[in-house]
């Protein structure tokens, strides 16, 4: 019996190794942690994440150490005899109530400080209204007369169809590219006003450290300020289940220099490219979105 099981296990293990071998070629095994990100807030959030992580590691080392020590040292098979007189100790119990409290206070202070910074949306230089739709995003640069939809780019969309026969690995940025990205300037405090037209969505770009829900009837705020010199393309996707194609509404943000941004806005205003791309989906009127009452 046990030999049979051993045989099954070893052949299963061999099959597993064979199946995993080709992975080494395109491995992203190193993708283990939260990105540090490119904004002031994202860096603070990363450092909070690492602080609480190391506290957890320390607590884990202590607790698991204690458990493993007991399991090794007090084995019945090694002749350990139970000391049944140990039933409680008020002193010990007070200690292991108080120490966690102290750790929690130490953690709560920096967390509260960062939270206050996150909620401080004063002095924003650029406001963009972001509206979630099933299943795309709409961006409206307030006061600039620039607005457009942003949806999953076509090659990904074809590849992701059920049994499409197309290879996702052959698509650059599979499921992470859009037809028209959000463009923002570096070193500028950008405020997003988030709402939704149909169901709840959530706007999340991990490199910016934040996500926030886009809720019908509610206007939420989120701000980010990308560090100077961190121009480039940053990607994320909808993070709140929003129906059938929830997995297929990516977010792409193109961070450019302030000059490039000005030129881009001017070009948008003159060439009339607004709203052009998804003409098939009749764009809902701005008025209908604007009726969404601010929360609070």
């Amino acid at each position: 019996m046990s030999r049979q099981i051993r045989h099954v296990l070893s052949s299963a293990a061999a099959a597993l190794v064979a199946a995993l071998a080709p992975l080494a070629a395109h491995a992203e095994w190193g993708n283990l942690n939260m990105p540090v990100g490119v904004t002031e807030l994202s860096k603070q959030i990363y450092s909070l994440h690492m602080t609480i992580f190391w506290w957890c590691v320390a607590i884990g080392v202590f607790v698991f150490g204690w458990m493993i020590w007991s399991l090794v040292a007090f084995r019945k098979s090694k002749g350990a005899v139970a000391d049944t007189s140990i039933t409680h100790s008020t002193k010990a119990e007070i200690v292991w109530t108080l120490i966690p409290v102290v750790i929690l206070v130490i953690m709560a202070i920096p967390a509260a400080r960062t939270l206050i910074a996150i909620e401080d949306t004063r002095n924003t230089e650029l406001s963009i209204k972001v509206t979630g739709y099933q299943w795309k995003w709409h961006y409206d640069y307030l006061g600039e007369d620039v607005k457009f939809f942003s949806a999953l780019e076509r090659t990904s969309d074809e590849t992701r169809q059920l049994q499409s026969g197309l290879d996702p690995n052959a698509v650059p940025e599979y499921l992470r590219d859009v037809d028209k990205p959000l463009v923002v300037p570096e070193d500028t405090k950008v405020r997003l006003l988030l709402t939704a037209q149909d169901v709840i969505h959530a706007w999340w770009v991990p490199q910016f450290g934040m996500k926030k829900d886009a809720i019908p009837g509610v206007v939420n705020e989120l701000w980010f300020k990308v560090d100077a010199g961190k121009t480039g393309i940053y990607r994320g996707q909808c993070a709140e289940l929003c129906g059938r194609d929830h997995g297929f509404m990516p977010i792409v943000v193109k961070v450019v220099t302030k000059e490039e941004y000005k030129a881009w806005v001017a070009a948008q205003q003159t060439d009339g490219a607004n709203e052009a791309a998804p003409a098939v989906n009749a764009a809902p009127t701005v008025a209908s979105i604007a009726t969404a009452a601010p929360q609070g």
Binding site: A80, I86, S89
Partner: peptide, 8 residues
């Protein structure tokens, strides 16, 4: 603490 000095 229950496992400590037990006979496991």
């Amino acid at each position: 603490a229950t496992m400590w000095k037990g006979s496991i």
